[in-house]
Write a protein that binds this DNA or RNA. Structure first.
Lengths: 348, 348
DNA sequence: GACTACATTTGGATCGTTCCAAACCAGGCC
DNA sequence: GGCCTGGTTTGGAACGATCCAAATGTAGTC
C-alpha cells in the first residue's frame, strides 16, 4: 500500500484507490455520490480524498462521458456596462448549474468574432451564447460553430439569417414597442413635434426603435419632419456634438425620443450649451436605464431592459435547450419597461 | 477505407486517418504543424480535415499533454464598469495567447468566491487571476486553489497574507500616491480646508487613499478636522445622501478628495441640492476616471487607473509566470495618473 | 448444501489526443 | 549484397476519469 501523496504529479483516482485499498471504479462512484457504495467504504474514501488533497479533473470526466460543463459567452463589447451586466447574469445561472462560463469578446468586429467562436468551439462548450458584433452574418457564424453545438443569439439578429439556421434560439429586446411607448408618452404629455435622435442607421436595434417611433407618430396623426431624424454615433460625445442638427430646420421639435441613454445624456449636454434646460424647455427619453439615468439632472425617463435579468434568461433558455436538443427553436422578444422620470416634461 | 463522415459521432483524428489512409499519429503531426511530415501527405490530410469538418478537441489534447489552455478570471463585481474593463483587457491578452478565459464572479462574497474558485480549479486552468471580494482571506483562497496553480492577485491584498503565500504575484494600484497627488493639486489651487469623502473604512483601497490624503495634508502643514473625513458606501446614491455631513461642523471644507468617481458624482449632486455649484463654490476630485467623469458638469478631475491596460498587464504577468513557474514572485504597484479637469477649481 | 436474491465491488475497455521508440523506405557508398 | 543515413510514418501505451458486464460476498430459503 503506497499511500504517500505524490510530489510532482497530480493526485488521481488511482492514488486514492491505492491509498485506501479499493478500486478506481469505487472511488469514482464515491466522487459522484452514487448510492451503490457502502457507508463505511464511502467514509474511508472521503477521508483519503481530503488527506491527499484530491482535485477532480472535470476535463477527463467530460472526455469519457461525452458531456460538457461549460457555456461559451461571446460578447460584442464587454466594456459596455449593459453587456457587462448581461454577462454577470449569464454567469450567475451558469454557475448555479455547476458549469463554468468561457468568456470571449469580439470588440464589435465580425472577423474577431469568428476567430473567437472558433477558439471557443475547440474547448467543447455545451452551448454558446452570442451577442453578435454589428455586421456579423449567419453563414460565418455557422461555419465557425458548426451545426452540432446549440447557439443562442442575444440582442441582434444576424444578417442573412435563413430558415436553415432555424434551430438557433433567439432572445431579443422589444425595441419597437419600447420606442412606441416612449413616443406615445411624450404625445400624452402634450408634445406634437417629436424628434428621433441618435444611433446608426444600419444597426438593427436603431432601425427597430425608429420604426416604433414612426408607428406611434402615425398612430397619433402627427407628421415627422426630415430634420427630426438625426443620426449620430451612440456615444455621449457625438450626441452632444449633433444636438445642433435638431434645430437646423423649421419647425424645431419640442421633444426627442433618443436611441439610448448615452445619447440622451449627450443631448442634454448639448441642449444646456444652447441655453435650453432639458426637462423644462425640452423633453427627452432614453433607452437602457443605465445606472446614471436615475441620477442625471434632470433624471431621465427611459426604457428599462434589465440586462442582468436578460442574462439570466438567456442562460436559462440555453440550459433548457441542452436538456432537450430536439425541441422547437424559441424566439423570445423581451418587453422593455417605460420608467417615467423628470426629463419627459410637458411642453414649455 | 471508410471515409464517410460519421453522423451522430464527432469527427476525430481516427476518422481523418482512415479517410486518407494514414495513421492517427501523422494526422496529429499535421494538426500541430510539425515540420516532420511530407508536403504531399500534409496537403492530403488537410483536405480531409476540411472535407469532414473536423474540430480539434483541445480538452483531450490537454489531458494527454498535461497542459492547459485556459486562464481563470474571478472578479468581485463584474457589473462594475471598472472591472468589466479590466476583464476585457485580460481577455484580450489571453485570447492573443490562444487561450480562453474562464469567467467567474464572486459578487463581493468571500463564500461565493471560494465556491467559484473551487469550481474553476476543477477545470484545470493554467493560472488564475483573482480580484478578491472584500473580506476574502488568504487561508481560504489557498484551500480552494491549492499551491499548484499560479495565482495573481489584483487590486486588493488578502487578509492574513503570510510569507507562505509569497509565491503569488500581485498587481495593485498606487492608491496612496494617487490620493496624495490629488490632495497636493487642491492645495496648489489654494485650498486649505480639504476633506476626504466616501468609502468604507475597512476596505484596503479606502485606507490607502485616505493615508495618501493625510500624508499630503501633513506635508503641506494643514490640519485635518474630524468631520472632514466622511464615510459612506461607494455609490452615488449614498454619497449624495452623506454630503450634508461635510458641513455639519466648523469650519466647513472648501474642497474634497473623493474615494472614487461614483462618490464624487454623488457629492456633486448633494452639493447642487445645497445650492453650491461644484467646480465653482466647491472643488472636488474623484478616482478611477470612469467614462462619465469627462462628461459630467463640471467635468471631473480624477485619477486614471486605466483598467483595460491593467487587465492586459495582469494577463501578461500571469503568462510570464506560466513560462517560468519558479521565478521570484512579483509585486507591482501601478501608478495612477492625475487628470485635471474643471471640478478642481481654486477657492471661491 | 445448493439455490436464489441482493448489495457491493471490480478489472478492463474506452473517450480523443499525444508521446515514444521503433519501423520503414529510398538512395548512396563500400 | 550489406550497411548506413536521413526523411517519414507508425502502432501501442499513456493522460484521468467513467462505463459495463461480470465477479464477489452475504443472507435467506428450501
Amino acid at each position: 500500500m503506497d499511500s504517500t501523496p505524490p510530489l510532482g504529479r497530480k493526485v488521481t483516482v488511482r492514488d486514492i484507490a491505492a491509498g485506501c485499498g479499493v478500486s478506481r471504479a469505487t472511488v469514482s462512484l464515491v466522487l459522484r455520490g452514487s448510492p451503490l457504495v457502502n457507508k463505511d467504504t464511502r467514509a474511508r474514501v472521503e477521508a483519503e480524498l481530503r488527506k491527499q488533497g484530491y482535485v477532480y479533473n472535470r476535463a477527463a470526466a467530460n472526455l469519457r462521458r461525452r458531456t460538457s460543463s461549460s457555456i461559451a459567452l461571446v460578447i460584442n463589447e464587454l466594456a459596455n456596462p449593459f453587456f457587462a451586466e448581461f454577462a454577470a447574469g449569464v454567469d450567475e445561472i451558469v454557475g448555479e448549474a455547476g458549469m463554468v462560463t468561457l468568456l470571449g469578446s469580439s470588440s464589435e468586429s465580425p472577423r474577431r468574432e469568428q476567430a473567437v467562436l472558433g477558439s471557443m468551439i475547440e474547448h467543447g462548450p455545451g452551448g454558446i451564447i452570442l451577442s453578435p458584433a454589428e455586421g456579423s452574418d449567419a453563414r460565418h457564424v455557422l461555419a465557425a460553430v458548426g451545426a452540432r453545438t446549440p447557439l443562442l443569439l442575444f440582442n441582434r439578429e444576424l444578417a442573412g439569417e435563413q430558415p436553415e439556421y432555424a434551430h438557433w434560439d433567439t432572445l431579443l429586446l422589444d425595441n419597437q414597442q419600447g420606442a412606441r411607448e416612449a413616443t406615445a408618452h411624450l404625445v400624452a404629455q402634450g408634445h406634437r413635434r417629436i424628434a428621433f435622435f441618435g444611433g446608426h442607421r444600419d444597426s438593427s436595434s436603431c432601425r427597430q426603435r425608429r420604426a416604433g417611433y414612426r408607428e406611434a407618430m402615425q398612430a397619433a396623426g402627427l407628421p415627422v419632419a426630415p430634420h427630426w431624424e438625426v443620426e449620430c454615433a451612440p456615444t455621449r460625445l457625438d450626441a452632444a456634438r449633433c444636438a445642433e442638427a435638431l434645430f437646423a430646420g423649421d419647425p424645431a421639435p419640442t421633444a426627442a425620443v433618443c436611441y439610448n441613454d448615452a445619447v440622451a445624456l449627450g443631448l442634454m449636454h448639448g441642449l444646456t450649451q444652447r441655453g435650453l434646460a432639458p426637462g423644462r424647455d425640452f423633453a427627452l427619453t432614453g433607452f437602457d436605464d443605465i445606472a446614471e439615468a436615475a441620477l442625471a439632472a434632470p433624471s431621465l425617463t427611459t426604457l428599462a431592459a434589465a440586462p442582468r435579468a436578460r442574462g439570466r434568461q438567456a442562460a436559462q433558455m440555453l440550459l433548457e435547450r441542452l436538456r432537450d436538443p430536439t425541441a422547437q427553436a424559441r424566439r423570445i422578444v423581451a418587453p422593455v419597461q417605460l420608467v417615467i422620470r423628470a426629463s419627459s416634461c410637458p411642453p414649455a
